[in-house]
Amino acid sequence: MNAPQFLAALHELFDVSAGSIHKETVLQDIAGWSSMTFIGLIAMLDEDFGVRISPGTILRCHTVEDLMDEVTVELSSTKMAA
C-alpha cells in the first residue's frame, strides 16, 4: 500500500475535491464523516486493500496516517499468516 493510493481512495469515498485530505487530516474531521461513510470506509478497506479493520480500531485512529499504519500492520500480519 502506498500513501497516494490510500489518499485517492479516501477522496473518492468522501467525494471531496483533490488535495483536501492529507496524512495529517483528523479522520473524523473529514467533511461528510457519518455512520454511513464509516461503513463505506470499512467496505473500501476490505475491497481496495483486502483488510478488515474493526470499527473500534478505526475510531482509535486520530489521523489518516494512524489509519494507514493500522492497514500496514494488518497487511503484514495477513502476509505472515499466509
Binding site: 461503513i39 470499512i42 474493526s54 470499527p55 478505526i58
Partner: peptide
C-alpha cells in the same frame, strides 16, 4: 445498532 460492527460481521 452499531452499523459498522454489523457490517464487519457480515464481511466475516
Amino acid at each position: 445498532m452499531n452499523g459498522p460492527e454489523i457490517f464487519l460481521f457480515t464481511l466475516d
